[in-house]
Design a protein around this nucleic acid. Structure first.
Lengths: 133, 133
DNA sequence: TTTGGTGCAAAACCTTTGCATTAGG
DNA sequence: CCTAATGCAAAGGTTTTGCACCAAA
């Protein structure tokens, strides 16, 4: 459960560096990849700090996080609107998809069972056209 | 890539025990949980053996495997009837829900983007009636 | 000055692997 | 017999945590 109190209070060089990398990044990247990118940029940041910042950003809903099949957590900046991911299980390519009907179905189903404050997660996996050939 | 040669050749007590647990199990369980269940049943099996058997079974498409957010791999027998979970974030109570429309939407969306062999995961979270009061 | 943030190293975690031993066929 | 499968312990990988130090406000 993320509360407002999770929000970081200090504007450090490291936090800015991590956020900057995430702003530039198009797809998903692991904490270690982000750590490497920071090193390449000469903006070295401790690995634990990278982890802590990514977690904080994800808790604040500024980043999307998901697990790949190798057990790594991947992060990327999320676009504002609520959406879901279509992920290629072979090359990792992701497509953002929206399904208003699904949103409504999920909320309705939950309410039908007496649930409140409903959220949901949905991910679709498959083999993309490039990888299938 | 799994080939037919992955298929185990010997019928050991341990393999039978693991398969038996998976047959009885309704939902997903981690390797360690399955290991515990085996211990409780008095059919002790080494943890590595549990891992190896679960992997072999998943490679042979006899089990479904997925990663949870804690980085554990969860297994369950491939059930023909596919459903999703509605989980109370307070007490953990879960309700199984079905949504044929969602299934179709997910498959359709994926195919529209050129994806094949489509799977998806969907979980709905909320606060159940008992916990809301 | 105060105290959240950082960095390092160590720990915790799940999972895999090396190797001697067991047991299925 | 033969060798796949097992069990243990050690290693592998990612992520978390304890603690002394640093720096933002």
């Amino acid at each position: 459960m993320s509360t407002a109190s999770d929000t970081p209070q200090r504007n450090t060089r490291q936090r800015r560096a991590v956020q900057s990398v995430m702003m530039d990044l198009e797809g998903f990247a692991s904490a270690q990849q982000i750590h490497d990118i920071l090193k390449q940029r000469g903006e070295s940041v401790g690995l634990s700090t990278v982890y802590r910042n990514l977690q904080a950003l994800a808790d604040a809903d500024l980043l999307d996080a998901l697990r790949n099949d190798d057990g790594e957590t991947l992060y990327r900046r999320c676009s504002s609107g609520h959406h879901h991911h279509l992920v290629c299980r072979s090359c990792g390519r992701t497509v953002e998809v929206e399904g208003p009907a699904v949103e409504r179905w999920a909320d309705l189903t939950a309410e039908k069972h007496g649930f409140r404050d409903v959220e949901h997660t949905l991910e679709i996996f498959g083999t993309c056209a490039d990888c299938a050939s």
